[in-house]
């Protein structure tokens, strides 16, 4: 079993009001088969034994699907490996004696709770604003009543694989949530079931995104590059198109439209 030693510089912050700082740790005899979070478990276990508070970080499924884990590792959201969440990053991607900087996902809309844990509830509020299809339980017709072209269904699925982790926001210089919002719109708008609410959805979700304090999109594409599920940048173009369409269609009624002449 191959092992490595690392120097860690980890962000510690006792609460939202604290300024925060980097703290140095040594991680020794780390098996290269470990996951990144298992490496942090080892560091934490040593801290607990010294009756010191362990480093708080969010994690849950540890198989790359729940979107709970975060971390900016050496400047990259979810670390250096493309298309990978932090929990699926393994230590074989690091070299002996590397220095590793570990920081929280930073964004105005994601306030730090403690150490590496941030509050991402803004994403929930964006979904609550319009990220759904309005269908009450029991009112659905037979599932095969509406055929959906496989290509469309596949594209919808690809967008729906977003895990809501927030890496797109953390890596964007503007802290924009455009990729997250666009992925949800693409998922629903590409399906026949999503058509009736398509325009309202675009208006409501974008308005909520702005209200939460996320920045604007300047199309640099780093979000898509950092996305562990590799959501396509094309979804943002689709979102902009739908939003524009909806904004034009929903402009305040003019005298013309009221037939006032």
């Amino acid at each position: 079993m191959k092992t490595i030693n690392l120097k860690l510089k980890i962000w510690r912050q006792s609460g939202p009001e604290d300024k925060g700082h980097f703290m140095d740790f040594n991680a020794t005899n780390i098996s290269t088969d470990m996951s990144f979070l298992e490496m942090l478990d080892v560091v934490n276990s040593d801290l607990i034994k010294q009756n010191k508070e362990p480093i708080e970080f969010d994690h849950d499924c540890r198989e790359g699907i729940c979107g709970t884990c975060s971390l900016v590792i050496n400047g990259s959201a979810h670390g250096p490996e493309l298309g990978t969440t932090t929990c699926q990053l393994h230590m074989r991607k690091f070299n002996d004696n590397d220095t590793v900087y570990i920081e929280p996902f930073r964004a105005k809309a994601f306030p730090v709770i403690k150490d590496l844990v941030v509050d991402r509830s803004a994403f929930d509020r964006i979904i609550a604003a319009g990220g759904f299809i309005s269908v009450n339980t029991g009112s659905a017709q037979d599932a095969n009543a509406i055929p959906v072209a496989k290509e469309k269904a596949d594209l919808s699925f690809a967008a729906a694989t977003c895990i809501g982790c927030g890496a797109c926001v953390a890596s964007c210089k503007n802290a924009s949530a455009s990729l997250f919002v666009a992925a949800k719109m693409a998922h629903l708008n590409l399906l026949p079931q999503g058509q009736p609410e398509k325009e309202n959805r675009a208006l409501a979700m974008v308005a909520q995104m702005d209200q939460e304090g996320f920045g604007s999109c300047t199309n640099t594409g780093v979000c898509s590059a950092a996305c562990p599920k590799e959501i396509s940048l094309e979804t943002i173009a689709q979102m902009n198109r739908t939003f524009l369409q909806a904004s034009l269609g929903n402009r305040p009624p003019t005298k013309l439209s009221e037939g006032g002449f």
Binding site: V148, A149, A160
Partner: peptide, 22 residues
């Protein structure tokens, strides 16, 4: 059987065949 109907109506992107059916 109702579950599948409900989920499809919500926009759950189940796998489909080329004819567009589930």
């Amino acid at each position: 059987v109702n579950i599948i109907d409900q989920c499809v109506a919500q926009g759950v992107p189940f796998a489909r065949e080329y004819g567009g059916l589930l």
